[in-house]
Every structure is written in C-alpha cells, then in structure tokens.
Computed example of a mutant assay.
Amino acid sequence: MLIVGAGPVGLFSVFACGQLGMRCHVVDALSEPGGQCLALYPEKPIYDIPGFPKVRARELVARLKEQAEPFSPTFHLDTLACGLRREAGKLIVRTTRDNEIYAGAIVVAAGAGAFGPNRPPLEGIENLEGKSVHYWVTDPQAFRGKHVVIAGGGDSAIDWAIVLSQICASLTLVHRRQKFRAAPASLAALSQLVDRGSVKLRTPYQLDRLGIVSGRLDHIDIVDLDGSRESLSAEILLPFFGLSSDLSALSGFGITTANNGIPIDPLTASTNAPGIFAVGDVATYPNKEKLLVTGFAEAATAARSAFAFAFPDRPYHFQHSTDRGAPSLEGSMV
C-alpha cells in the first residue's frame, strides 16, 4: 500500500491496512510525520478524539505513530508523490526524490494537500529560515531565553504567544489589525499576559525589514498604518500567516478534484481512478463532517476497499482487533 500523507489520518491508515496484513509506504511533504497537527499546533488541546477528554496534538501524533509502528511502515519524508503509471496490475508512483514505489493500491490522506508557509515579503528571509525564522514550532525549548517576535493574528500566533511567553527572554506579538481571529479563551489568556507585561503587543503594525548582523537575526523593523516605525530586538521570528495548500502534485494520477478536495464514494472511499482511495480532509462527499474521527472511519473503509482491489482473489475475513491479538505483520498474507 502507498499512503500519501503522514498526518493523523494517514498514520491511522497504516494501522488499518496493517490489520489486514498489508505493508505500507508513506509519502509526505513535511520532514516528520504528523501533518498540520504537529507543524502548526502541537501544544493545542483536541477535545473530539474518542477516549480522550483532552489530548494535545503532539501526544495524539505520538500515540498514532506508536499504533502504526508494529506494522513497520516505510516513510518517505520531504517528498511528494508526483507521477503515476500502471503496469502489470501495479500502481507505480514516482516521487520528487526520483524513486519509484510499486503499490497494489493507493490511499490519499493528504489533508489540504502538500502545504507550505505564506512567507512575508522580507528581503533576506530565505537565508534565515530554519535558523532564526520558523514557520512552525516543533520544540518550544529551542526558544528558551531568546528574544522572540511572533507575527500574525490567528490561533497559531495567539497560542504560541501564550506558551512561549513563559520561557523566552521577551516576546512581542505583531499584528496588522487591532482584532485577532482566535478562540475567546485564548484571547482572554493573552490579555492577562499583556497586562502583566509578559507579552508586548504591537497593533496595528506590519513587518517591514529584517535587521541581519553577521548572518543572524538581530532586530526587526515594524511600521504602522501611518508610517511610524519601531525597531524590535529579535533573535527569533515566527511568522504565522497561514499555509498555502496544493493538490497539483496529484494531477497526474487521474483523480477528479473539486474545490481543493477529492470527491469519493463514502461507502468505499474510492475516487474516480481505479485503485486510488481518499480519506480525511481531502476526501469530500455530501454532508461530510470534517472531524478527525470521520477520517479515522474513512481509513478503515479505505483499507478494506484497497485490500479487495489489490487482492481480488483473496478472501476478506473480518476480525476484531481483539481476535487478531497484538498488532503485527508476522504471518500476514501480504
């Protein structure tokens, strides 16, 4: 099986396919499994996962990786699936690493598609990316004792301002508007931090220029709507201006797309292209609820449908996980 996307639903697809004895290769554009959950809001609590009254995104991803691990998935990270041909009953997928993966079927769990950050138009920013400029946070402790500037007005900007204000030397939040687009509870917590001086608020301001000294970020110039300027001491810049998503890498797969999604038959998770299935946020059908639990259910459906496509002569014997015993591919048919 080839799974396109290593977010939560992609990781659960490894488990669902493994339960049927199928090995998986997983392709993802990011440098580690976890998708947008891990890239954008690893510390954010999630409340709609069955059995977890509250679980942080980072912990959920860790649990899903642990659940998939017994089935020994092969990950191809920092990689896109970019081409497909059919040969002798196999689907042969080409990647941007010039590899070819032979699969019996494909499950697309691409979320909103391959995504990248919306970069602010600042001269020299590319040379600082991954060092002084980060578009998502993987390890908050890396910013301990640093002078941090966060730019943006959405949930990611507010949530990380709250978290990082507890450990960094200084934190300034810059937003081009007076109003923020975040949960009321988060805004209330931010207001308290501003009142205590733990967070400096600069609104309505925009990033204007990076001050780079000896190849490192030293300060950031900001400007308001009247042209007034201010220079902020900064070792770290976190621009949270959202992500741009793209499904164009799958254009050669023969899949019908509509409104940045892939229409599927909800009874089978099948797309219009034989042997290709879609699950999670990328999959669309009437009255769909875009919840993780919906994607997990679609993954189980897709695994069964993919098994039937890849192995039409093999009987499908449904087993509860308790009947199978401890998860493993030992003794599997595939």
Rank of each mutant, 00 (worst) to 15 (best):
G10I: 04
Q36N: 09
F12V: 00
T301F: 02
Q178H: 10
F115L: 05
Q192H: 12
L193Q: 15
T96W: 06
S165Y: 02
D139P: 00
F240M: 13
C37N: 09
R58L: 11
A16P: 00
L243T: 06
I220Q: 04
D281L: 10
L237I: 05
S231H: 01
P140K: 15
K44F: 08
T294F: 04
S245R: 09
Q67W: 04
A114I: 02
L64K: 00
D78S: 15
S156Q: 11
H147G: 00
V279S: 07
I212S: 07
D224F: 07
R181F: 09
P120T: 09
K179H: 14
R85I: 08
Q36W: 01
G21K: 05
E87I: 01
I220S: 01
D281M: 04
M1F: 06
H219V: 01
L30E: 09
L91K: 09
V4A: 05
C168W: 03
S305N: 07
Q67T: 01
V133H: 08
S305D: 02
A6K: 05
G116M: 13
L20N: 03
L40W: 01
A185Q: 12
A151H: 08
Q206Y: 00
G280T: 01
V137W: 06
V199F: 07
N99V: 01
R229G: 14
H134C: 08
C37A: 15
E69S: 15
N259E: 07
A88V: 02
D139Q: 12
A6F: 03
R58W: 08
A278K: 05
